[in-house]
């Protein structure tokens, strides 16, 4: 132990020296920037609403509340964005089948009679490398 301490003293081993401060500041700056951008890109998934094959609306999942979806001045439905999930409500289609389920449950919401497709736009693989369920029939 005494030998080690003397070696430390000889080689001037210290974790923080005043002259290293600039270097550590730069490194910390890089790390904080990287973490910030990492979070910024992972957050804020965008919801895209396509009507008749054309993108008509884009919302952030963080914009909670009710959004009205219209086409040619006609109200088609409302979207309810709540806690990062979306449901169709007040749809003007005859059977309201599109009001069943949420975007989180099905990955995509579709109203066939009104030709509306609602999906989340994100840079993510559509097929996950897991043992879970890949798709549903029925």
């Amino acid at each position: 132990m005494r030998q080690f301490q003397s070696r430390v003293k000889e080689n001037n081993y210290t974790l923080f020296q005043k002259r290293d401060l600039y270097l550590y500041t730069i490194l910390i700056f890089f790390v904080i920037t990287a973490v910030y951008f990492g979070f910024a890109f992972s957050k804020g998934s965008v919801v895209e609403v396509r009507i008749n094959g054309t993108v008509q609306y884009r919302f952030s999942l963080e914009e909670e509340g009710q959004k009205s979806i219209q086409s040619n001045g006609k109200r088609l439905m409302d979207l309810l964005i709540d806690q990062g999930d979306i449901r169709i409500i007040n749809s003007q289609c005859p059977l309201h089948l599109c009001e069943r389920g949420s975007l989180k449950q099905s990955g995509v919401l579709v109203c066939v009679p009104q030709k509306v497709i609602i999906s989340i736009v994100r840079d993510e693989e559509p097929v996950k490398d897991t043992d879970g369920i890949d798709l549903i029939t029925g």
Partner: peptide, 9 residues
Amino acid sequence: YWAIAVQDP
């Protein structure tokens, strides 16, 4: 394999 669930009617 694709794991395919059958919807509960």
